[in-house]
Computed example of a mutant assay.
Amino acid sequence: MKFRTLPLFVALISVISSCQQKSSAPPIIGTWELVSATASQKDTTFSTFNPNVKMIKMINPTHFAFMSHDRRTGKDSAAAFSAGGGKYTLADSVYTEHLEYYIDPAWENNKFEFVVKIAGDTLVQKGVEKVEKLGIDRIITETYVRVND
């Protein structure tokens, strides 16, 4: 009798283990596509989102990277390409990017702090974008949706 229950026990354990979550990674880990973006400077808020440009942000446990490319094809697609990345920290809802690489070196070695909210497949980040060398000082809000594999 005991031998007959062993296959049933093994099958039950297999079913239970497959139902458990396989990843304990923070929900920010993944690939995200930008779907809206605004900037506020002084008393003015304006959209910085261009529907002709596709931008994704990839976040792994230690680094982030972003790339954007104009969806319209042309002879010089390099002129419409942008990319950057670096290390980040995440403490509760405070997400801080340490930009190490960017197509424009004036942006490099800057820190950008955001408050992030993740609900379902949507990530919203809001914070100050400040680059003294370029005279940029504005509040930005970006909304991303998770890209499914």
Rank of each mutant, 00 (worst) to 15 (best):
residue 104 D to P: 03
residue 128 V to L: 10
residue 88 Y to A: 01
residue 104 D to K: 06
residue 50 N to W: 04
residue 73 T to M: 06
residue 124 V to C: 02
residue 124 V to S: 07
residue 41 Q to P: 13
residue 108 E to R: 07
residue 11 A to H: 09
residue 127 G to N: 01
residue 69 H to K: 11
residue 91 A to I: 01
residue 125 Q to N: 05
residue 87 K to D: 11
residue 56 I to Y: 05
residue 96 T to I: 02
residue 119 A to F: 12
residue 36 S to D: 14
residue 83 A to H: 09
residue 40 S to L: 05
residue 11 A to S: 14
residue 52 N to G: 13
residue 89 T to P: 01
residue 103 I to V: 11
residue 91 A to P: 00
residue 123 L to S: 03
residue 80 A to G: 11
residue 131 V to Y: 05
residue 92 D to H: 09
residue 68 S to D: 01
residue 25 A to E: 14
residue 43 D to H: 05
residue 126 K to R: 04
residue 117 K to V: 10
residue 12 L to E: 07
residue 16 I to V: 14
residue 20 Q to N: 06
residue 103 I to C: 07
residue 83 A to Q: 07
residue 111 K to S: 07
residue 27 P to W: 10
residue 20 Q to A: 11
residue 130 K to M: 12
residue 132 E to T: 15
residue 118 I to W: 13
residue 115 V to G: 12
residue 106 A to M: 10
residue 44 T to K: 14
residue 24 S to Y: 10
residue 114 F to N: 12
residue 59 I to Q: 05
residue 73 T to E: 06
residue 90 L to N: 00
residue 112 F to Q: 01
residue 111 K to P: 00
residue 9 F to V: 15
residue 54 K to F: 03
residue 61 P to R: 09
residue 122 T to E: 13
residue 50 N to D: 12
residue 91 A to S: 02
residue 69 H to S: 08
residue 86 G to I: 00
residue 52 N to Y: 13
residue 21 Q to I: 04
